[in-house]
């Protein structure tokens, strides 16, 4: 019989590849795979998923920082909000029943799937010819064209408030906050998609730490399972990022929607049946 940890390694590998290809991170896939597929208790699945989020964030952020694609100005400001949310999420997760978390997970999966299926393209950022040196004017070099793109960040206050909820969701469900952070930055704050995704990745590690220490202190981190998920997630994420330009994005979206619908249904069934 194959040990649970090896199955978890394969599940994390698959989730890492798929999550990276679909642009949603691995957490949204790894938690139901471990919980529904392998029978790992939901709180333990969320705890090790958070560690996978930290591993992917830290390894990918280094490359993004070197490439000058991360806005630390935006990231650090929003991080104060997301880490506060992460504490709240991680603390509340220890108080609520697994059935509540399963129901919430199911609803979030449906929402993300619907957004991927029917969501509009992100709004065009407000590009500017010459940064005026204002606090939130910024510039980055677009890798595809090699040209400098200057943009103006707006709605920082509202973005910070929404980031608290991204942190809470990350702490409660172990999925990272990217599903909220990226659309908030692109649609509300006027950040170009390239900077939004890389800055979100930079933020996810510290956000997940704020919740993961709470799970760790409650004894909900199974070390061997954590090893499987971290190693699998990092390897899978790297493979996925290399395949991203090869596979058609629309087919990936439809595949994700199908997988998400299946897991959302299973999670909601567990919430009703009490087997989460």
């Amino acid at each position: 019989m194959i040990p649970l940890e090896l199955l978890a390694l394969l599940a994390a590998l698959g989730a890492g590849v798929f999550g990276s290809l679909a642009g949603i991170g691995g957490g949204l896939i790894i938690v139901p795979l471990l919980s529904v597929g392998l029978g790992v208790p939901l709180h333990n699945a969320i705890a090790v998923s958070l560690l996978g989020v930290i591993a992917i964030s830290t390894s990918a952020s280094a490359n993004y920082l070197d490439a000058g694609l991360v806005s630390r100005r935006i990231g650090l400001t929003l991080l104060v909000a997301t880490t506060l949310g992460g504490i709240i999420g991680g603390f509340v997760a220890g108080l609520v029943d697994a059935r509540f978390l399963a129901a919430l997970f199911g609803v979030v999966m449906i929402a993300v799937a619907l957004r991927m299926l029917f969501g509009s393209e992100p709004a065009e950022p407000e590009t500017i010819d010459d940064p005026e040196g204002l606090e939130f004017d910024a510039t980055y070099i677009e890798p595809r064209t090699g040209k400098a793109v200057a943009y103006r960040v707006r709605n920082f206050g509202v973005g910070s408030v929404i980031s608290v909820f991204a942190g809470i969701l990350s702490g409660l469900l172990g999925i990272g906050g990217g599903v909220i952070n990226v659309p908030t930055m692109t649609s509300l704050m006027g950040v170009p998609i390239r900077v939004a995704t890389t800055t979100s990745t930079y933020m996810l590690g510290a956000t997940a730490v704020a919740s993961a220490v709470l799970y760790f202190s409650r004894g909900e981190v199974e070390p061997a399972l954590a090893g499987a998920v971290v190693v699998g997630s990092v390897l899978g994420g790297r493979v996925g990022s290399r395949l991203q330009h090869v596979l058609p994005q629309r087919a990936l979206t439809l595949l994700f929607v199908g997988v998400a619908a299946f897991f959302a249904f299973e999670m909601l069934l567990r919430a009703i049946g009490g087997a989460a």
């Binding site: 591993a55 830290t58 390894s59 952020s61 280094a62 061997a224 090893g227 190693v231 990092v234």
Partner: peptide
């Protein structure tokens, strides 16, 4: 620091596995 830390953690956790 991020590269070194993530590599060290993944190596130690891989050993644990």
């Amino acid at each position: 620091v991020l590269t070194l830390g993530s590599f060290a953690a993944a190596t130690i956790l891989g050993l644990s596995l």
